[in-house]
Amino acid sequence: MANEPDVARVAAAFNAPGLRYRSFGNMPVRTDAPRREASSQSPEVVLRELRSTSAAVRLAEGEASLPPRASAAMDVEGDTVTFPASGFTPAPVAPAPAPPPPAMAPLHVAPTFPVQPAVAAAPPSAPIPPPSFFPPAPVTAAPLPMPAPTLDAGLAVPLPLVAPAGPAVPEFTLLNSIQAALESPPVAARPTPEGTLARLRQQVASPAGAVQSADPAVTFPLGEAIRSMAGASPSPAPPNDTFGAAPRSSSPF
């Protein structure tokens, strides 16, 4: 434990009160130190404490007997930095150049999503929206007249509206969060006359009809497909076998 001043400086620099020491049986020099404030752990304060602690250690060396070691001394101490009862003089340390860094950044940080500039350029005449993290989307549709909704006439509890009945487009979309704009919407696949389920059933019912279709039906069981993928069949080896060969050959197991 010859580097206590260095450790203390590092602890002070990181402003980490959680750094703790064990006394390992040595006399606790300073056991009743109050819990320090975060701002008091600047390097200057720590150095000042180190100097006073070293003086106390020198005084303690002059005493003939040491107090019996309490069993609690082996416990993890709080923020108290305990130094061994050996004479040591803190090495001269240059004064800390900067004030202590601020406390650690808060864990809960409000998410900041980039917004598109076009949304921010709202007309000044638009009504001021309630304080919202996201800019409102332009109104694209007129509000539909809707009576007060109730789930049960007997209960007659008015249900809250998600949006004030005007905008059909949400004020925030997931696309905005990823800054993706669909310049040209992709063309959806043209549907077949029958649905996917009907086509599947047709393929299963009549394999001959499936052969005539554009997409040939797979008629072997799933287990064969999985075995084929795993390389159990004599089919061409998958490319990852090349990578798997080297570890197997050089492995001591």
Binding site: P170, F172, T173, L174, L175, I178, A180, L182, P185, P186, A188, A189, R190, P191, T192, G195, T196, L197
Partner: peptide, 26 residues
Amino acid sequence: EEMMAEAVAAQRFLLDVAPGSQAALD
């Protein structure tokens, strides 16, 4: 259907975004 994923990203429904797609028919 790719349009299904894009409809989710736009927080809209498939029947709004691509009503004529195969997935919409399904």
